[in-house]
């Protein structure tokens, strides 16, 4: 069973990135469960796979407008798709780092992969519900999706 601490670890990883890199903290929206079908996937998704004590994926998915504003806030002038991919990849990397720190040595965490569009590329484990945690930043809303056995 997923524990509160595990969820908090992923959420903290995400919010930590916003607080430090995006120069403006994000707030956590009301979390919910997706039991059937795929959770939300926006235009850019940074994903890590987890194995060991728990198995599955965790991803951060955000829209182009949100990433555009984030890049601008970070002083980036080139608002390219590549930079947006890098951005969600960095968020995923921060989540991964947080998870490594908190979960200790029992977990295997993959290097982040980035998917731009193409939601079919994101494969969630079968018959596993996903926890969706909205990450609200300014007027935008991204999602942190935790889908672990």
């Amino acid at each position: 069973m997923m524990t509160k601490v595990e969820l908090e670890t992923f959420v903290e990883g995400t919010t930590h990135y916003f607080a430090t890199a995006a120069n403006q903290p994000a707030s956590v929206g009301s979390p919910y469960i997706v039991q059937e079908g795929k959770p939300t996937i926006q235009e850019f998704t940074g994903l890590i796979s987890i194995a060991g004590k728990r198995r599955g994926i965790v991803y951060f998915t955000a829209s182009r407008p949100m990433l555009t504003v984030m890049l601008m806030r970070m002083g980036e002038t080139e608002l390219t798709q590549e930079n947006m991919c890098d951005l969600v990849g960095e968020v995923a990397n921060t989540i991964s780092g947080n998870a490594r720190r908190d979960f200790g040595k029992d977990f295997m965490i993959s290097v982040p992969t980035v998917v731009a569009g193409e939601p079919e590329k994101i494969v969630t484990p079968d018959n596993i519900r996903s926890f969706v945690i909205p990450i609200n930043w300014r007027s935008h809303s991204a999602q942190l999706v935790v889908c672990l056995e």
Partner: peptide, 18 residues
């Protein structure tokens, strides 16, 4: 209250569903 405070709820909801 914030969304983080609701994390225990989704965990318990998941448990109840299961």
């Amino acid at each position: 209250l914030s969304g983080s405070d609701f994390l225990p709820l989704v965990v318990k909801l998941d448990d109840l569903f299961n």
